[in-house]
Design a protein around this nucleic acid. Sequence first.
DNA 1: AGCATGCATCGACGGATGTCGAAACACCGA
DNA 2: TCGGTGTTTCGACATCCGTCGATGCATGCT
Lengths: 121, 121
Amino acid sequence: MSNVELLPVLDSSVVVPCCPPLTERPLDAEEAERAAKMFKALGDPVRLRLFSAVASHEGGEACVCDISDVGVSQPTVSHHLKKLKEAGLLSSERRGTWVYYRVEPSVVAAMGKLLAGAATV
Amino acid sequence: MSNVELLPVLDSSVVVPCCPPLTERPLDAEEAERAAKMFKALGDPVRLRLFSAVASHEGGEACVCDISDVGVSQPTVSHHLKKLKEAGLLSSERRGTWVYYRVEPSVVAAMGKLLAGAATV
DNA sequence: AGCATGCATCGACGGATGTCGAAACACCGA
DNA sequence: TCGGTGTTTCGACATCCGTCGATGCATGCT
């Protein structure tokens, strides 16, 4: 039943260039500015729910109508999705009536790499 | 009956209970609230630099004096360290004149687990 | 063309947040 | 006990941010 999605195997070396792991050395101002934007994007409960809804949706994508039941108005949902997009965490594409959002794997991987190591001090 | 230890030994495999990976299922409101607090704590450039400074400091800990050169006033540094502590990402201990901060590995690991999977959609 | 639906933008409002200087607190050495 | 240094707390302020209703735009259906 499940037609397997084509997974572009996560190539860890092609991760979006941002910053070294947080444990490698203290981030400088510019690096911190960039990295903070990504964390900030997930630093809101509504955005986190939207992101999770997209990430966990079958097919790896979801239209706004699929995920907009998070307790805030429709304009607010749209506002948050825009923020997530600006942070690079989601991308969107219009197909007919609906707009589909999907996770941007490389950026999420970059966040993971930032954290990697900090848990094993 | 419940005279159970409230704070069991922190086994690094037993990560702080928070939420399932973001890809497993959509987070509910309560989970999102908890998880967002952690991301929000790292969503400020100054806090990210402070966290990185602690995480990368030799010995896994640093006193405020070691890391307070991030371009803001000293009270502001203290304010941000408090936020990181409240989020559970750092812990602190006073030893004589100085206060030492260190990374709380289990909480950082929890954040990593949230992200894990979202990069391999 | 006209209308209904899905989504984005606008403008406004209230509360949260980052920042500072001043002051308080904790500790140590003389 | 006193002064000095490291750190936190306090109070104030400007800005940012999440939220909403109203409105605009794009698409598809009749």
